[in-house]
Design a binder for these strands. Sequence first.
DNA 1: TCGCGACGGGG
DNA 2: GTGTACGTCGCGA
Length: 877
Amino acid sequence: MIFQLLDADYFLKENKPIIRLFGKGENGPVCVYFDDFYPYFYAENLNEIDDKRIKSIEEVEKFIPIGYQKNPVKLKKVTVYNPKDIPILKEEFERRGCKTYEADVLFKYRFMVDHGISGMDWVEVECDKDHTNMTSIPIFHGRSIKKINRDDHVQLKYLSFDIECIILDPNRQIDYSLDPIIMISMAFSPAYKNKKTLVLVAKPIKKNKDNVLDFLGEKEMLEKFLKIVDEYDPDVITGYNINNFDLPYLLKRLEKYKLNQNFGRVKNKAVFTKTFGQTEDTIIVGRIVFDPYQILKRDPMIRLQRYSLDNVAKSLLGDKKIEIDHKDIHTLWEANDVDKLIDYAEKDAELALRLILEKGLMDKFLELSRVSGLLLQDSFGGQTIRIEVRILHEARKDNFVIPNKPDKKEINRRNLEREKKELKGAFVLEPEKGLHANGCTLVLDFQSLYPSLILAYNISPDCVVFNPGSEKVTRSPAGVYFVDKSVREGMFPKILRNVLETRFKIKKEMKNATGEMKRILDAKQQALKIMANSFYGYTGYIRARLYMIDVASSITAYGRENILKTKKMIEEKFPVKVIYMDTDSAFVKTTITDLEEAEKLGNEISKYVTGELKDLKLEFEKIYKTFLILTKKRYAGWKFYRENGQWKDEIDTKGIETVRRDWCPLVSETLENVINIILKEGDVKKAIAYVKGVFNDLQNNRVPIEQLTVVKGITKNIESYEGTLPHIELAKKLKRRNPQSPPAVGDRIPFVIIKGNDMLSKRAEDPNYVKEHNLQIDSEYYTECQLFPPIERILLAVGVTKSEIMGNGHQVSIHDIFLGNKKKKEEVTVLKGIEEFVCQKCKKSYRRMPLSGLCECGGKIVFSYQGNIGEKCVIEK
DNA sequence: TCGCGACGGGG
DNA sequence: GTGTACGTCGCGA
């Protein structure tokens, strides 16, 4: 039988561990179990021992990959019956001074590693049909298993679902035990009984659509849901934020009604959630739980301000949620006005599914799973485990054993070591700040720098030579010796060579591939790139099994050495200047303005440096016609690149955030425009004029209120906030205005700052209310506190002074007040900052200190900060 | 500037 | 489950 491996677990039957593999082949899902495989670990210096938990002890010779070892060491391979006895035995052994290895490898991975199988691999098993009914899918007794090489994937079945619930008491948070689920919507791919979606409703209603089923109550609805999951039998269960909301909620409600909490593919293990501090993970044996929220939030290629389903759908699908204020869910439900609710629920389930299918969210993980060795379900998480499982595979082939994960004592030791030998990072050249026009800036970077270095210099924990003797070694710039690869190719270099070579091959294949195959290949090369780039981080990660600070610091040391060499080489050979470098990239200022010529030079530099350095490849990445750099890691460039032979351009920004949650749209837009004018027109004066125009519009109320609105969420009961925050003050105001439906926890409050004498926070106002009552916007606040600081940073970098921007030498910004106060530091009481200035007598508030030092009414001015008032104030510089 | 604690998504 | 854990942001020191 041939199938693709989706999931695995084990259970105990009469003190005998049984491994179960879940897969999918041509004839659908299958389970194959193996009952002749036992857990084991390795022990060093183990004396004779008689213990009924131990099945057998065998003497073996293995290499330990910490430092170079010429000869293997003698170890005992201790095989036991019950995997759960291993951590107990490990403790007992270690207490007696016996070192253990691989004593914390999950049993399912022990099986997979020993049989050379990765998650999502195609496998061939010899097996017999079994007639027990412990699974909901056909089950077989396996006799042998081997991997087969196949790149394709079986069609997976997806069920996306979303629950709606009502909070019976709007003044508290959701309570799983009290608040009922009123609807469950589902979206299927492929369709279920010819239906792409289905909505279950927890009370009898008048149905207007044929994909709606109504029930007597919540319990009956839940029963039907379980039945549908069982019948449809999805491989993947998905939905937006199901891991932290829908799944745990569902389980609690099933528990309440004493319903079978088992909608996985086995009958003897219920679905359960693991709670780790904040996050929860739900395990459904035999199926895969895939949460697009969790995936998107962690995807470095997709950067969004917010990851709400609505926002994500808008940015990635050009679609959106159906609008229902969640306070209205209860009302609509009580009023039996459920049609819109049904559409709302249906849409949510659909959107989550569309995200996965249309954006190919699963592709990368299918490949990452194969490349790393992890089961698909585990490939969504951290990088460490990816490397470790791959290392285990590799170690087995080469007769190595891998250390356990470090315990508290070991982590302590590593932390102490770190204080002594600090881990020096990458080299960053102090940039030549400002605008670089009149000549293109060429950007070049090393292709996979750290992986290439590991490969080139045989950097690996098993190659470190502590006391160099007769072996051929190389000394890294960090002063660490590594055995030459002619003596032994290290474990890391060996894996990386394979990973990089495979990636190179795939990128070549991709050029001729089309359609589905091209997508798979692209996902595969991405997965390989992710793997390759994880190794450096791994060596310096304190919890890594193969952590060695000497290895990590050798990698960065070689990196620094090579990039400095590169700078010298470029500047000696070409009439250019390197104006900035960071880790693996070089920014080269030329005097060339013609794009074709710049391109030619870029290619020449790339070819020259690559030729000189041999093991490394410096790639010509892009041309910036103009380049603006503020500080290390913060810059913008007018990028030119070719697409189908044609020159295209765009503005590239790094580290200069034009979008931030606490900035109103006006700030983002103005900032973007300022950068555009400077880069594309090279006209700083025009940029200043533009900024002045915006200031002017603000003063004269010509800026639409939407442009000034900031949105912030309420995260807890509004009475329990300690400081005074604008959106919370506004929420209190809104509650007073409309006590029937006050803002609740989780609501997002849009606000603007209006003119007035109160402190800043008290002047937050609802934009609609402002419009209706024709209130005045505090344009000074928007100028000084919102617009000015980010714009100032940009303009100062191109040599503009403050008064040039403000256009009035007499105006003093709040920063000047800070500086002015610094001298008086010794006689001062403490406020931790200044938000504004308040008259002690009439309470009028000022954004800036009045020039006279007194209020109009003659009262004394004091400082105000976060609702506190003080006569004096310390501002640390 | 750094370290710590809270929050995110969902209804 | 041969367990114990994420990233980012804002705040206070």
